[in-house]
Amino acid sequence: MKAYQLSAEYLRNKLSQRKPKVAIILGSGLGSLADAIEDPLIIPYYDIPGFPTATVHGHKGQLVIGTLGNQEVACMQGRFHLYEGISPEVLQIPLRALKLIGCEQVLLTNAAGSLHSEMAPGSLMLIEDHINFTGLNPLTGENDEAIGPRFLDLTQAYDRDMRTSIQRVAKEMKIELHNGVYLWAVGPTFETPAEIRMFRLLGADAIGMSTVPETLVARHCGMKVAAISSITNLGAGMSGNALSHEETLDEGQKAAKLLGDLIVKWLESLL
């Protein structure tokens, strides 16, 4: 039995009658949304066979399953990054396990740096496309055709219907929701001013160290994906300030309520 199958079997035994259809992955500074989940079943990652352990400050490292916005959800309170020393293929495990327990859609959130001064810290950006600047892919290696195709079409990596529904809810709530292209860099160092200038030329609107590998894995196994970036800083050289993870956490927490309200209302809008 493969690692993600062991993970899914363990989770199924824990779930009882719960049947989450929506998975949510929370980024840096955004973990407080999981605290709003009703009747929560909390499972630390270290208890789940095959799951890596989250090591980044600000990521609790637990799966919270319960009700949010009248929907059964499975919420990852903390995620995994390549800069933690995790091999790309290990990133397959959580999403494939969530798929096997019944999740059909995944909403990804992250903290990101803006490449445009008009999209300032505290803004929200709905990801419409991405650039994988790492040269790495969690789908590298032997392919399991029972999960997904060897060569995955990413023309619609981020589901159009999910994006439309999130935009509609944001408009109803009078929340300004930017749309843009997210660029994935490995980290853990922040980018240089020269890199920021290059990424802007490539067509990126925001940059971060996550989300893209999860999108690739989720799409490979047939899940629909949407993703929202919480803008925590301007890119290096744009503000004159030094960048820090503390700033990422602080600004992420400031935007957490706005993003949390949007997510809850979006969940309530689902059939």
Rank of each mutant, 00 (worst) to 15 (best):
T248H: 04
P94H: 06
F51L: 10
A256S: 15
L262R: 01
T53I: 14
G148K: 10
E246T: 14
A256E: 14
K19R: 15
G66M: 00
E268F: 00
P94V: 04
Y182D: 10
R163K: 13
S7E: 04
D159Y: 01
D205M: 05
E172R: 14
A227T: 09
R219Y: 03
P44M: 07
H130P: 05
V56Q: 12
M125L: 12
T192F: 10
I131L: 15
E214V: 04
P88I: 08
P40S: 11
T155D: 04
R197H: 13
I43T: 11
N241H: 15
R150F: 06
G113I: 12
E142N: 13
V90C: 03
R168G: 02
A194D: 05
S229I: 03
E9K: 15
Y182N: 01
S229K: 03
S123H: 09
L98W: 05
Y10L: 04
A218F: 01
L271P: 15
G135N: 10
L183A: 13
L26H: 13
L107A: 05
T192H: 08
L270A: 04
I42A: 01
I48F: 09
A185K: 13
A120R: 13
L26Y: 11
F133D: 13
I93Y: 08
G69F: 00
D159W: 03
D129I: 05
M1K: 12
L100P: 08
H57S: 12
H81F: 02
A255W: 08
I101N: 03
L30W: 11
Q253V: 08
E72C: 07
Q5N: 12
L258H: 09
A36P: 00
K2I: 14
S32L: 01
S32F: 00
L216R: 06
